[in-house]
């Protein structure tokens, strides 16, 4: 086995800001990162308002809390998939390392998620101040999420966007690297793990304890749990991407 001597390497500077430029590269997909999520958020808001108005028209005056504000969260799955499949091959033509591409994409998702969270918090504050647009209808201001204040609510929302983004990104990477068979196997393994958990809880007759844990932990507590989980997902994505051919 012959080996090559690497001692003669010239010292060359790495150009700066390559990672930040990946954010700009991702935002070339304005449709993916801005317009579609904005449309999902705006659309679900309009639909929720119409439903509140219909219910209000029927003489119901109690609190009407819709789950519409979670709709854009799911879309971050799609953003994760698209950030991977659309932009990774081009990032390779731009001579980026996989690490630069991954961290830059994560930063781009954070920017998008941060924007969404800001809208979510502002809407919630507005609903809080106006008593649900004067008709007791709440799109963003959900008691359970806002229990620990607007900052915690924003953090929960932001964490959720990144959680879904990394799941989408990882699955897309698995699909691109190992094909449909690989992805299906991964999903089956995940399903198996979930069933194992359900079986464990059921056989231990621990469901009340599990439910109690979720309620006791609350939105902020769950968010604090979700952050390391998202970190693990991100690490998994990165290690899958690391040896991925363009």
């Amino acid at each position: 086995m012959t080996t090559l001597d690497s001692g003669a390497a010239l010292q060359h500077q790495v150009p700066r800001n390559r990672m930040l430029n990946v954010v700009r590269l991702q935002f070339v997909n304005t449709q993916t990162f801005i317009w579609v999520p904005a449309l999902v958020l705006g659309g679900s808001w309009v639909l929720s308002m119409m439903i509140f108005w219909i219910i209000g028209g029927a003489g119901v005056t109690e609190v009407k809390a819709g789950g519409g504000s979670q709709a854009p969260l799911w879309y971050f799955l799609a953003i994760g998939i698209q950030a991977m499949t659309m932009t990774f091959p081009f990032s390779q033509a731009m001579s980026l390392t996989r690490r630069e591409f991954f961290l830059g994409s994560l930063a781009a998702a954070s920017v998008s998620g941060l924007g969404m969270s800001l809208v979510f918090v502002l809407l919630g504050l507005f609903e809080q101040a106006t008593g649900g647009y004067g008709i007791n209808g709440y799109f963003a201001y959900l008691d359970w999420v806002w229990a620990a204040g607007p900052f915690a609510a924003g953090l929960t929302y932001l964490t959720a966007t990144l959680f879904f983004f990394t799941i989408g990104f990882w699955f897309a990477t698995i699909f691109k690297r190992f094909g449909a068979l690989g992805l299906t196997t991964a999903l089956l393994a995940l399903g198996l793990a979930l069933i194992g958990f359900i079986a464990l809880v059921t056989f231990q007759e621990a469901w009340p304890a599990v439910v109690k844990w979720f309620t006791d932990t609350g939105a902020l507590g769950l968010t604090l749990w979700a952050i390391p989980v998202t970190g693990l997902l991100a690490a998994g994505s990165y290690f899958t991407l690391r040896r991925m051919p363009a």
């Binding site: 997909n29 304005t30 449709q31 993916t32 091959p89 081009f90 390779q92 001579s95 363009a246």
Partner: peptide, 13 residues
């Protein structure tokens, strides 16, 4: 710099 013959670009690009 290596742009492939079958280079893929971001969808909206």
């Amino acid at each position: 710099c290596f742009v492939r013959e079958s280079q893929k670009y971001p969808d909206d690009a």
